[in-house]
Amino acid sequence: MAERLQKIISQYGIASRRQAEQMILDGQVRLNGAVVDELGTKADPNSDRIEVNGKLLRGDRQPDQVYLLLNKPRGFICTRSDPKGRRTVMDLLPKNFHHLYPVGRLDYDSSGAILLTNDGDLANRLLHPRHHVIKTYMVWVRGNPSHEKLAKWRQGVMLDGKPTLPAKVKVIANEAGNSKIKLEIKEGRNRQIRRVAEHLGLEVLELRRVGIANLTLKDIAPGRYRLLNAQEVEQLYADTN
């Protein structure tokens, strides 16, 4: 069955669908010997010759789909490799999982839940803004935020000329003059939480993502991971319909 090349490439665990699109635009993909530069191009790996950076994709060798939830510590970046030599989430995984790629990102100084998979369809669903997948965070900020600031956070603030979506914000502890906040958001702009906090005059001391949709970090120590079961994967698909 013919499908878009970027979807096929993501299904083989070579890159996420967005990364595959860029690879096509950069001329790194050949179809039946010809360089492809149009994102709408379709192919069938069982009958067409598809090459990515000179590597042939075999229709009979499509890898099994794997879904993994990792508890990322601080000091790691959410990419498969880094030209600057920094540690990546791949350094936390055995080599048999190095064909997976992260779904979304947590920045270097943040920790917590990150999903990795070679299922490009699910990754695309989870990342698409229209699905509003809930992500839950614990955020430690300096001082005690005023009711006014918390209300603004809940309602949404302007970032890059566009308001953030309404969020659930609850102070759950005050310790040593600092506050621990439980935060639920339905979008994931670049460094969104830190930028919103800065906009409100709040200093983030620590940021940890503790949940993605129906997934939590229960029983997963920092730097460790677990595989998702079939019911969890099915629920993620249901959440992104």
Score class of each variant (00 low, 15 high):
G40P: 10
L150P: 00
D239C: 08
R142G: 07
Y137E: 03
L207A: 04
A238G: 09
N46H: 14
H99I: 09
G120C: 02
A230Y: 10
P73H: 06
A15R: 06
A221L: 13
I185V: 08
K84Q: 04
R125F: 01
D64I: 07
Q192L: 09
N174H: 10
Q62G: 13
V103R: 01
E175S: 15
V139N: 02
R18E: 00
L92H: 11
P129H: 10
G104Q: 02
E234P: 00
K218V: 06
Q192R: 11
V133H: 07
F76M: 09
A20Q: 04
L57N: 04
D26W: 06
Y237L: 09
Q235C: 12
E184A: 12
E21A: 01
G201D: 00
N46L: 15
N46W: 10
F97Y: 15
Q22I: 11
Y137A: 02
Q155W: 00
L228R: 15
Q22Y: 07
H199L: 10
L116V: 05
G59Y: 06
T240R: 14
W153M: 12
L69G: 01
L227I: 10
L115G: 04
I8V: 08
R224T: 11
R195I: 05
G75C: 09
L217M: 08
R194F: 03
R80H: 03
R142Y: 11
Q19E: 15
D239R: 10
P145K: 02
Y101I: 06
A197S: 08
L126M: 14
S10M: 04
H199A: 09
L106R: 10
A197W: 00
R4C: 05
E198L: 14
N96K: 08
S10K: 11
V133R: 14
P83V: 08
K170Y: 05
R125G: 02
I114L: 14
L217D: 03
R74S: 11
I77M: 03
I212H: 06
L93K: 05
P63R: 05
A167L: 04
Y237E: 08
H99W: 08
R30F: 12
